[in-house]
Structure formats: structure tokens, C-alpha cells
Design a protein around this nucleic acid. Structure first.
Ligand SMILES: [Zn+2]
Ligand SMILES: [Zn+2]
Ligand SMILES: [Zn+2]
Ligand SMILES: [Zn+2]
Lengths: 151, 151
DNA sequence: TAGTTAATTGAAAATAATTTTCATTTAGCA
DNA sequence: TGCTAAATGAAAATTATTTTCAATTAACTA
């Protein structure tokens, strides 16, 4: 479950941002897709429902949504800057299929031991972390097995 | 300690690549810097010693070196596509200072429990992971403290 | 060591990604 | 219903990356 429309609207408003149809449209697209989407892909989809929207607005909207933590940026695998809807409240990470790009969330990263050790050893004050696993999703594994069997 | 020049040359040659002065120069710059460098920054430095080198060659060289695992790509923090020398043989990760960009390596990530759990729950075949911590390095922490004290 | 050849290079052009500028429009509020 | 600051879209500007192609060169062979 993602944030509700209302919750999102309230967060935007409280941060001094207006709720515009364009911003709604971008949010809708991202929350409807389970995959991560590049700015260009988001633009394309939004554009179908909202032909007058500009790519610039998509970029600006993404910056705001990411800044507010409503969406998250995904890095692994080729293209930088893709976006995913953020699950509410909870810190989480992604499992990304290197074949089809499917994204699965997980929440219990439990890096606190590692974090403490590193902070101590490197005299770092750790503020955050980026953790992503890559591999093959269930479907892609199946597909590969079938291919192999067919040979 | 990074790979020796010879080791690197041998890896390149075994993969069918030639050892050119340009490739040497790019490797030297990356291995001499402890920070991660963008393609543009690498180009700038290489260019000083090697004025006739083109940015295109830098891009092509980076692609090859990354493909062979001799350097690694760093993602966090603003600009995508920065490169760091890879420490030999061992799997490792980075601590990145969000203030000055300093990079510190660490090796013992020990994500195997998490990995197994995720593989089981999500039916994923996990092939790799991306883990980076961000925070403040020793020096930047000091600097901040001094600033605070001065107020 | 000279000759051969496929890989590599650099310059320029092409393409793609992102940001800036600015005149016009609009959401949110009184 | 106005008012106003924020947001928008179009176009231009900037930045990042890739492609193309003729000239050069590293590595191998005779
Ligand atoms: Zn898949
Ligand atoms: Zn985490
Ligand atoms: Zn620092
Ligand atoms: Zn690891």
C-alpha cells in the first residue's frame, strides 16, 4: 500500500507546494506502475492522458517528490534516475531483476551492526545507506529453465 | 593495494584489448585518486598529461575497464557515473562523505543471511548487491563541530 | 626488424538528457 | 470574485553520451 492521494496532497501542501493536475498525473503514473520508470517513460505515459504537459514539468515534479521522500530513485542496472512509488513511513530497499527489471521491496535490512562497526572504524557519522540486490526474479528464472530444457 | 600495472595489462590483453598510452593514462589517474571521479573529471586530468586525448576515448576506456571489473562505478550522491579503482580480488563497498565526497572502502558486508532470506521469500536468484553508506567523514565532522563552536 | 592488419584513436556530428529562461497561466487564499 | 506567488510550457541553452569515419598504431608475423 502506498500513501493515499490525500496523504500525498497534504504533504505537498504542508511543504508549500501546490497540487496541480500535472503533479497528480505524474504521481498516478508512478503509483500505478510496479516497475521503476525513467523520467522519459513517465513523461510518455503522462502525456497520453495529459497531452499538454511538458517534459520539464515531469522533471520538476520528480525532483520535488523525491525531495519529499514520496518516491525513490533507483540506480542499479543501466539507466540512472528511475523512480518508484515509496511505501509509506517505512525505510525499505529493492530487489531488482537484471533481466526484466521487476522490482520487489523489502524492509528489514538490519545493517545496524555493520553501521556501528563502520562508524567506529572509519570515524564516520553515518546518515543513510543505499542497498539493492540484483538477480533473477521468479518468472525470469522459470523462463531460463524452460529455455535450457528446450535445448 | 590495487592491481599492479602488469596484472591490469595482462587482463586487458587476455580479453583482446590493446594496451595503449591513453588507456594507461586513464588507469593511472583513477588509481592515483582516492576519490571517485566523473568521466569529465578524469578527462580533465588525463588531458593535462596527454593533451591530444579525446573525451570519447575516456568514455570508451571507462566502459572497458568497468566491464572487466578493474574499476567500479559509484552511484550515490548527485552525479551518476563516477569511477573508482577496484581493490583486487575482494568484494567491497564504499562509505561516501556527503559533504566532501571522500570515499572509504570496506569489505565485510556480510549480507548472506539477508540474501538467503530474500531469495527464499521472493523466489529470487540473487546475483549481486549494491551497498553504500553515506554520512560525514572524520574531517567534515570536525569542521562542523568547529563551526558550531565558533558561533 | 619491416610489413600487415585489426583495433584504436580523435574530431566532428549526432543524439540524448537535463536545466534555464521567460512570458503566460493557475491554485490557493482573502 | 480578485490577488499573488507558484507553477507551467515552449524554446533555447547546456551537459552528457554515442556514433561515424578517416587516420593512426599496437601487436603479431615473416
Ligand atoms: Zn525478471
Ligand atoms: Zn536499509
Ligand atoms: Zn567529508
Ligand atoms: Zn557486499
Amino acid at each position: 500500500m502506498t500513501f493515499t492521494q490525500n496523504k500525498i496532497a497534504s504533504i505537498l501542501r504542508h511543504s508549500g507546494y501546490k497540487i496541480t493536475p500535472q503533479r497528480r498525473a505524474v504521481l498516478n503514473i508512478i503509483s500505478q506502475s510496479h516497475d521503476h520508470l525513467t523520467p522519459a517513460a513517465i513523461y510518455e505515459k503522462v502525456h497520453q492522458q495529459h497531452p499538454r504537459i511538458g517534459l520539464v514539468t515531469v522533471y520538476r515534479t520528480l525532483d520535488i517528490l523525491a525531495e519529499l521522500g514520496l518516491i525513490c530513485e533507483v540506480h542499479s542496472g543501466g539507466s540512472c534516475r528511475s523512480y518508484l512509488m515509496r511505501r509509506p513511513a517505512e525505510h525499505h530497499h529493492h530487489l531488482i531483476c537484471s533481466d526484466c527489471g521487476a522490482v520487489i521491496d523489502f524492509t528489514d535490512c538490519d545493517l545496524s551492526n555493520l553501521e556501528q562497526r563502520l562508524a567506529r572504524e572509519a570515524h564516520f557519522e553515518i546518515k543513510g545507506h543505499l542497498l539493492e540486490f540484483t538477480g533473477l526474479c521468479r518468472d525470469c528464472r522459470k523462463r531460463m529453465k524452460q529455455k535450457k530444457a528446450a535445448r
